[in-house]
Amino acid sequence: MSVALAEGNLLDVVDYRGGFRGPDGEVTEVLAGVSFGLRRSTLTAVVGETGSGKSLTALSVLGVQPRGFVRTGGRMLFDGEDLFAGGPRSFERVRGNRISLVFQDARAALNPVFTVGHQLIDVCRAHRRLGRKEAEQVVLDMLERVRIPDPLRRMRQYPHEFSGGMAQRVMLAMALVSEPELLVLDEPTTGLDVTIQADIMDLLVELISSSGLTACLITHDLGVVAQTCQDVVVMRSGTVREIATCEELFTAPRDEYTRDLLAASRLVEAR
C-alpha cells in the first residue's frame, strides 16, 4: 500500500520496519513497513487489535521502544526532518519538547518516590527557561486546565495517592506543560472505568482543539474514534490496512479487515 507524502503533514511515518532480536540473533519482524501521515491540527486515530504494532509505532516516534526492538528500515519525518537520521540526538531534541507522549496506565508511568508536583516541575523546567516559582505557577495552571480539583494540595501528593483517572490527568498535564506540537496518546483510557474514560476523552478533545495541537490517538476502541477523530489508520500484523477519514471509514470501509473490526465493535448495527 502506498501513501502519498502529503505536503504539510506534521509527521510522516514512511515504510517503518522493525522487530525483536531473538536469542539466535535473528530479527522477528513485527512492523512490516508502516506508512501513514498526521495532518496538522487534526486528531488521527491508529486502531488495531493487540499485537498489530500500533503502540510500538507510537513509542518509536520518541525512540522509547522496549529493549530488544531493532529498527530495520524506514523513516520518520517530523516537520520534514528524519528523526532517525541524526541518531539518538535528534530524538533528544524533540522529546517532551516538540513531541509529547501520554502513556497508558499513568500510575505506573509516574515515579513512585517523587511528588507529582516535583515531576511536573522537572519536566517543565527541562524545556522552558523558568525559575522554580514560575514553573510552579505554570504547573498549577496546567493542573487546573486538566481539571484536577484542589491542584495546590494535589501537587504535594505522590502518584499512589491518585486514582487512575486523576493520574491520567497528571500525565496529560505533564505532556502538555512543555507546549508540544505533537501529542501521541498511547491508549490513554485503557484500564479506566467507562465513565472516567468518557471524561478523559472529552477533556482530551477539548484541549487538543482549543490549542490547535496535532494528535495521534492509539486505541482499539472504535466507539471513541467515531466520536472524536478526523482521520483513522487501521493497522494489523505490523502493516497499515486502511487510511481514511473518520466519516469514510464508518460509512464505506474499503478493507475487509476494517469491516470485520466494525462488525466486531457493533458500531455498524447502530447505523
Binding site: 522509547v64 522529546r95 502513556f103 505506573a108 508511568a109 515515579n111 519536566v123
Partner: peptide, 14 residues
C-alpha cells in the same frame, strides 16, 4: 527498565 524511567525519557528529562 521501569515505566517511570521510560516516561522521564519520553518527557525529555536530561
Amino acid at each position: 527498565d521501569a515505566d517511570y524511567v521510560r516516561t522521564a525519557t519520553a518527557m525529555g528529562l536530561p
